[in-house]
C-alpha cells in the first residue's frame, strides 16, 4: 500500500496543473482567412486567383479581404466576408443587398428570378446582380457559397459602368475558387 500511496502522491500534482498565460515570438502567418479551421481538420479557408491587375488588401472590420480594381479605382471594389452558418438564409441576404441599393425586398418566390448559378470547386455559387435607381446608378453583383458550415460572400459593388466592366473577371474569380 505504501507503494500505491507513493505513486498517487507523485501523480497528484499533475492533477492540479494550472493553465497559464504564455508569450512567444512566432513567424508571421499567411493572410488566408480561415474561420472554423478546425472543422473537418482542414486548415486554411477559401483560396482565390486574382484577375490580372486586381490587388488584394488585408481584411479589416467584417471583411476577410478586399480586392482593389485599379481599372475602376474608387469606382468599384470587391469585398469578401465569411460568417458561420447560413447567416439568416438566402432570402434575408438578398434583401439586405437590395436594401443597400434602396430596392424593395423580394419574396421567396421571386428569388429564383434573380439568381444565376456559377459552378466552382466549392460547389454551386449563387450570384445576384442588382442595380439601384436614381441618377447615379449603383450596382451590386454578389456571390454566396456554403463551405464547411460557413457562408462566404463575394460582393462586387460600385458605379454601374465600373461593375459592368469588372463583372466578367469577377465571375471568373468565382469559378476559380478552391478550398
Amino acid at each position: 500500500m505504501k507503494r500505491l500511496f507513493l505513486v498517487l502522491a507523485l501523480l497528484a500534482p499533475a492533477a492540479c496543473r494550472k493553465d497559464a498565460v504564455e508569450t512567444r515570438r512566432v513567424p508571421k502567418e499567411g493572410s488566408a482567412a480561415a474561420p472554423m479551421s478546425a472543422a473537418g481538420g482542414a486548415p486554411g479557408g477559401v483560396h482565390w486567383k486574382l484577375p490580372p491587375g486586381w490587388k488584394e488588401l488585408a481584411g479589416n472590420g467584417m471583411r476577410a479581404a478586399t480586392f482593389r480594381l485599379p481599372q475602376a479605382a474608387g469606382k468599384a471594389e470587391v469585398s469578401v466576408v465569411v460568417l458561420p452558418g447560413d447567416v439568416g438564409g438566402e432570402l434575408a441576404n438578398v434583401n439586405r443587398w437590395r436594401g443597400q441599393l434602396a430596392l424593395p425586398p423580394v419574396t421567396e418566390d421571386g428569388l429564383a428570378d434573380g439568381r444565376a448559378t456559377v459552378d466552382s470547386a466549392l460547389g454551386p455559387i449563387f450570384v445576384y446582380d442588382f442595380t439601384g435607381g436614381g441618377e447615379k446608378k449603383t450596382r451590386l453583383c454578389a456571390g454566396m457559397a456554403r463551405v464547411s458550415g460557413t457562408t462566404w460572400f463575394f460582393k462586387l459593388m460600385g458605379d454601374d459602368k465600373a461593375v459592368a466592366a469588372a463583372k466578367p473577371a469577377f465571375l471568373k474569380l468565382l469559378v476559380g475558387l478552391t478550398n
Partner: peptide, 28 residues
C-alpha cells in the same frame, strides 16, 4: 503584437482563464 514585419509576439490566454468577470494582465 503584429508590428514587426518578420515575426509576431503572441500572448495566449487559455480557455480556463476566460471566465466572465476575470481581469487578465501580463508583463507582455
Amino acid at each position: 503584437d503584429v508590428g514587426d514585419p518578420a515575426q509576431d509576439t503572441v500572448t495566449t490566454i487559455p480557455e480556463s482563464l476566460l471566465k466572465p468577470g476575470a481581469e487578465i494582465s501580463d508583463a507582455a
